[in-house]
Amino acid sequence: MSDVVTPVLKRHLLSIDDLTREQAILILDTADELARISDAPIKKLPTLRGRTVVNLFYEDSTRTRISFEAAAKRLSADVINFSAKGSSVSKGESLKDTALTLQAMGADAVILRHSASGAAHRLAEWTKGSVINAGDGTHEHPTQALLDAFTIRKHLNKNPEQNGGVGADLTGVNVAIVGDILHSRVARSNVLLLSRLGAKVTLVAPPTLLPVGVSDWPVSISYDFNNAIGECDVVMMLRLQLERMKSAFFPSAREYSRLFGLDMERLAKGKKSPLILHPGPINRGLEISAECADSADSLILEQVTNGVSIRMAVLYLLLGGADA
């Protein structure tokens, strides 16, 4: 049969490092096709009927959980939400025991959100099903990066003959990722994915919020947002956690906002009226002004919509075939 996927994905999606360029494009293309179905009046496909998907969330993240849940349900998978709060987990059950329990329940995939970097890697060692990393500490959040890449590709290929960029990568696209790179799993996954897809990535942050080992990343570094925004096609703003202030990463929210926040004035310095992305939830007035968040170039809500398509694609490509 000619319709067997050639770049078969690994069993787990733990890091963008698990994906080749071709596999990443396959996910984006699959999401593109699934997005059309999501637009149809009947939003349910029988594809994953009989599969069980567990949302195992050790951190509150309603939007990511709902996005995965919607994706799984549209593919007719059974979804079990397992929130760490108020469960046996909060009574001291180890991640390993939880993993073994979920396996005994017959979970085909576990979607894990956890505050510890590498938690998804650990879980993958203890469970037979697929593990999808839905954010692990300050490490990675691969599906967020995929939906960001998907959103960017779609918008930069809007003409009908470009067909939403199906099959294409992001060669030549300039992306600035701005803010707390050090603690951002979104940034790590995006740096890997966007550069793998050919985009040129610039990190914009105060030196305190860049990791010491950043020199090894395939990016340029800028401490000057005004300068960096000039050639950008896309500006990706990261959420700033205010508690970082206590550890002396920056002097005050006001100073941070002035130097690294996005407002209309700064946006106007961009020569290409850049697209605005933000993984949410946003701090209006801190890393991004309300005007920018609501502007025509802002794709923040579209990211949410695209998130469901990307997660459907990942679930389909991991679970839609024979058991590994």
């Binding site: 396959l26 096709e33 075939g321 024979a322």
Partner: peptide, 21 residues
């Protein structure tokens, strides 16, 4: 019309790429 997502033999092979409908 791509029928992949409606096939009843999905579990017999690795996942298949979708063809645009």
């Amino acid at each position: 019309l791509d029928i992949t997502l409606h096939r009843d033999d999905l579990r017999s092979k690795p996942p298949r790429a979708l063809t645009p409908t």
